[in-house]
Design a protein around this nucleic acid. Sequence first.
RNA 1: GCCGGGGUGGCGGAACUGGCAGACGCUCGGGACUUAAAAUCCCGUGGCCGUAAGGCCGUGCGGGUUCGAUUCCCGCCCCCGGCACCA
Length: 853
Amino acid sequence: MGYNRQIVPDYKPQTVEKKWQDRWRDSRAFEVTEDHAKPKFYCLEMFAYPSGHAHVGHVRNYMIGDVVARMKRMRGFNVLHPFGWDAFGLPAENAAIKNGTHPETWTLENIAHMKGQLQRIGISYAWEREIATCLPDYYHWNQWVFLKMLERDLAYRKSSRVNWCPSCNTVLANEQVVDGKCWRCGTVVTTRELEQWFFRITRYADELLEAAEQLTEWPDKVLTMQRNWIGRSEGARVKFALTADLDSIDVFTTRIDTIYGANFILLAPEHPLVQAWSEQAGGEALRGNMQRFQAQDRTGRMTGDIEKEGFDTGRTAINPFTGQPVPIWVANFVLGEYGTGAVMGVPAHDQRDFEFARKYDLPVTVVVQGPGPDAKADAEAMSEAYDGPGTMIASGEFTGLPASEAIARMSEAAEARGIGERTVQYRLKDWGISRQRYWGTPIPVIYCEKCGMVPVPSDSLPVLLPKVQEFSGRGDSPLAQIDEFVNTTCPECGGPARRETDTMDTFVDSSWYFYRFCDPKNADLPFDPDTVGYWGPVDFYSGGVEHAILHLIYSRFFARVFRDLGMTHLSEPFTRLLTQGMVLKDGQVMSKSKGNVVDPDDMIQKFGADALRLYVMFVAPPEKEIEWSDAGLEGSWRFLARVWRLVDHLAESIGGQGIPAPGELDLDDGERALRRKTHDTIRRVTLDLDPRVHLNTAVSGLMELVNELYAFCGRNDSLRVGQAADTPATAGTVVRASTLAVLKESIEALVRMISPFTPHLAEELWEMLGHPGGIVEAGWPSFSEDVAKADELIVPVQINGKVRARLTVAAGTADDQLRAAALADPQIVKHLEGKTVNKIVVVGGRLVSIVVK
RNA sequence: GCCGGGGUGGCGGAACUGGCAGACGCUCGGGACUUAAAAUCCCGUGGCCGUAAGGCCGUGCGGGUUCGAUUCCCGCCCCCGGCACCA
């Protein structure tokens, strides 16, 4: 099986594709400007990390977006379809450490190669808007936004325990820790105490959560993931007074109704009181346990289960509802970062507390009695905690209430007594953006001995990334080693000062690039508000689901920041989101390290870009993963050759002007059938592309039409195509004018509809058909509903007023025949058994009503 | 455990609002063409029975609603993805 065989010598994709790619480039075919006369459409695929070579898994995404963009152009939209490079980041730096190439050289070379790949696939990008985040005219505006956020207290600096990847030698945001491992390299993450910059994303937690409801064109999966990530829970904060001193402990609980069963207090090892007590006289044992728990915490969480352990602090607090003293323990499973770092232990109604109580022989008080015969009120007999609904018992004045109601009543009581309040807790944390790496945006602040932290004045931006020549891979920020960069003067007092040497997380770059594309050359602002006002929001956004929380939540956050800066009116940046599936080879994700990548250039050489595009779009719905198959690609190639052959064969007969539209002609049955199929296909393919994005079924619809055209031609000796007896439809052969008219309509619709998938081939065929203008000017074919459904009618059949069946009949069926058909229908016969038919009424040929006794 | 998605031929997958299950493609088989092969064109390809016409079964399992269920409802089983000691 050789791939380069030429079945049809005339279809030479490589020649055709080169020709049209050159024309598109020379005519700047995909460059756009704001045009208020047309509806706008912003089509965007997640920009690329320039890793070196794009494989088909990457380019699938660009193909999906390109089909949408090209289809929208044909439908009369002013389409913005840009591309760029997420060009900062660690791999460039690692490459520098490994083989001494400067990150910038490495990155720019990769960009050049990958850009060529995308152009050879024929993706219709407005390349004049190309951006690369590693260039100063882009990261300048990262710094600008940072300063704006600093002004608004959306950026702040604090010392905290942060995630640390020992392999990447840098801090990671919570979102970048996946199963306790680094999202990029998979190394187990540790923690460090560091001064870091944070973005206050938590200020928008509630809004991000609530607005998710309005994202009706996002996949449920992504919205669910974001909801889980934000992790809102409603509850109450309750104060437990200490018996020994005037201090108190705040706990957070979602089950204040169980507070009469709170038999102990549990503190996180990180809780400040634990720290304080361990430093007091006699605190040695506490200190030892505290440190032990802190050390085991993270690894334990990664494996999923660590032994629940605790240590009695020897102190007590007063349960504010029972008035009874309860012991205070330190517990390894209580998290310092969540809630108040302290919880009330209710062993009867919380499984963790139950296990803890059993282990350390603490009392268990049941306060909620479940319904039914196996209601558990006997603490001794319990084998597990009961966390279901029920009725309050042993709960003072609240006894007898349903637990659900007790939550509200007891919260009110706590508020009234000033010992608690209703609160909402989020799992979402502020976004730590400092990275101890070189290849990123310098954080524009200066530390002055006299003035403290001073922002770089915005007229001094950008703070340029200096050219570091040596990359050691050591653990400190590379910028810290460059004296000329570090040492500066304070913008306020002019005294000696030091620059911040950390760089920004590269996710900052990707959080707003979609706005920059609207106005990529703006030298005064990140973008002009009016321009984004025209193009924004992104109407169609596609990319991998792996960004469901990282990039997509950060972008929603940044959209709100820009909105609150008065730069846009948009809260949500992406109206519609499509998460495309991965491309697998041999059941595994393609990756360079696994050695199972398919390079699009190899496939283009064998079958052409159009066949590659068509195959990838056809083999599965865009959201699903696909298993790469050479045979499948060859099948797509075969289909295109078939289309070529068909058009080539008929071009002379149906090309150019002079053939009338078939609507005015007298058609025979076969012609009418083909015409119906054509219009039905236009209807189906149109809907499959817009608003659905069912690209695979759109392609199959086109294949059906081609099969139908072959069958149609096969029935006519003068038109037969692709067979031994194949002869061109030459002059002198008698072909009905109506046949040619129908064929012309059908084939032109086919060529137009296939063009988003196989743009080069379609343009070539369109030219062969004698059209001087391009296919975009020709526009999308329109269909006639009447033609599409010409002779199909579904007639409801009522029996005594109720619809009991539907008959499918030919349009124009006579009333008598309708009656007969109804009486012959097995479903209706069933209903008429043992009954007498009084009369059968036919209403307008579209409803049959049978009256029976 | 909680949340989301799904389960259809040898395979990838179709089936719109409840209306002929398996479109389209891959694979495989047959025919035409050819000295031959490839390519091309045509036909067949869920299972079982039947020479055939045709019949029966069939969308994870068990029920239900309906003239009619892959589709709607109830109860299970399994798979994929996310979150998870979050109080």
